[in-house]
Amino acid sequence: MSVLSAQTRSSYSSTGMGSFQVVVTGTLESVTVSGFDNVHAHYSFKKGSKWQYTGGIEEGNTQMGSKAFSGPNRNTIVWNFPIEIQFSSVSPSGWPQLIVTVYGLNWLGRDIIVGTGCVHLPVGPGSHELAIPLFKPKDSSGFHSLHSLITGTLPEFRDPHFASLTTQRSVVRTQSTGFVRVVLNVTFRNMNALEYSYSGKEYSL
């Protein structure tokens, strides 16, 4: 985990000719999931080889949040956790992805995985609201599901960045579980000078 001030020195070297910066600030707001009363999340980023972190916090853990006692949204658990990160790159290829893994407590008080989700950070400046869908690996056989029921050890991805991969997915079976709501504000720097065209507009077709 790196802190803003510790990284600012390196940001000068990577802001040379030919690179642009993407600054993302935002909030990991809440999760909508059924069947869990207490959940916390871990977030991190996955980026291509041409990208560098130049500031902000690269990964973190939210607090353990609980459901509201009353109210209309009994399935939504709020964290309101801040995110702040800066990237520098020479190419949009390998655009950073936000990976959120949500953990809940089962009846024994153990941490179990609720789901993992991964989306690309917005590719336009401005405010963006994202719903990150969560999924978790499924037991590969009836025996495994019985085993995990008895021992309380649920299947998990060996690679925590599995959700961000484009290959190797075809052999995996998953179960989708819910959504994490994230609001992100994105700012670009130096992109016009490199003749990139972009837009913060969002269309639904």
Binding site: V119, I132, T174, S176, T177
Partner: peptide
Amino acid sequence: TQTDYAQNEMTIWS
């Protein structure tokens, strides 16, 4: 994509 067994109305691959 992976094979998703959806609980809700929408199947998710992401």
